[in-house]
Nucleic acid binder design. Structure first.
Lengths: 176, 176
DNA sequence: ATCCTATCGGAACACTGTTACGATTACCTT
DNA sequence: AAGGTAATCGTAACAGTGTTCCGATAGGAT
């Protein structure tokens, strides 16, 4: 429904209609429209997790981490409206709950391997949070068309951001 | 109104009421609720620009750039709902227009000085875009409470992200 | 003074989230 | 298997929203 009708078309009545039931059923099951959106939100992160789980691992942890980045970007491009529900807040009544850290477990795993191999340095959780924030920002900017007007410029900036961040995370300088 | 009543309280009727007029006046002037939100959106970036313009410049361009980052973070923290209108999309009908690059002119200016001083390397626009995307992501994550549970961890991750990115941007490696 | 245009008040329309009230269904205890 | 209890659902209604229509007004140009 999100992909077809967009966000404005996602209404309790239409959801009920698609499910061949009445609105009361929706409210009985989800309590709120916020609860309904919450399920979409959570399903989005489950889908992302399934997506990242399919990635293969090589003997180059850093390349594997780059693959996670690429997969994340692709996920947002393929599911723009769902990504909006996940990372923006298109339904003002729904406030996102605790960070859906489970979805990023594959990313954290790659970070851990990079740390073990000495390709990155620092705290695992900190690095993961920084990377997720970077991906979040890049993907949102790209979706809004703010990252550049041409495909090449957008790609170039993605590459630059990822490369620069990985470069900068190679040396542990906590506290400096 | 945004700060007081939140996003759900921002309705055409209430706007008209606060302005001591009728809803028709609002529609005559802004055409749409999207148009109304657009003005708030643009005013937000103007306010951000005014905020960044007040920053002083020292003889350390990199420190000046860090100050811009801090000011941006403070802006989002001080105006959470406005920032949501600017960087998320709480009103589903309003689609943000072209990138409000003017607001980030002070940031671009600092980037240029860093490039001139050899403290950063690469394309000015590319670096600026990467930085804005990073700030966007970090600020949004912090607003959602996704960047960490304690103040110190959130601060630490902001610092790590900024330092790592600047470090990584010190050497130009375009095309590699 | 007159006319035209922009602006505005009031009322209405379609639609939304939400709830009240029965009716129905499913389950589970005996 | 029977009956009762709780969950579920259809229908209709409520308040509130974006939006528009129709007059009325006001202010400036001619």
């Amino acid at each position: 429904m999100l992909a077809e009708d967009g966000i404005t078309g996602f209404t309790t009545r239409k959801v009920a209609q698609r499910a061949q039931t009445s609105t009361a059923a929706v409210y009985e099951l989800f309590g709120d429209k916020g609860g309904l959106v919450r399920e979409v939100f959570l399903e989005g992160f489950r889908l992302l997790r399934r997506n990242l789980d399919q990635l293969e691992s090589s003997d180059d942890p850093l390349a594997d981490l780059v693959r996670v980045v690429a997969a994340f970007r692709l996920f947002v491009r393929d599911n723009p409206v769902l990504a909006e529900v996940m990372f923006s807040r298109p339904f003002s009544d729904f406030a996102p709950g605790p960070p859906q850290v489970a979805a990023f477990a594959p990313l954290v795993e790659r970070v851990r391997r990079c740390l073990a191999a000495g390709l990155l340095a620092g705290d695992e959780a900190d690095i993961a949070h920084v990377l997720v924030a970077l991906l979040h920002g890049l993907a949102t900017q790209e979706s809004n068309g703010w990252l550049g007007t041409t495909q090449t410029s957008v790609d170039r900036r993605w590459a630059l951001a990822v490369r620069a961040t990985f470069d900068g995370l190679r040396t542990d300088r906590v506290g400096t």
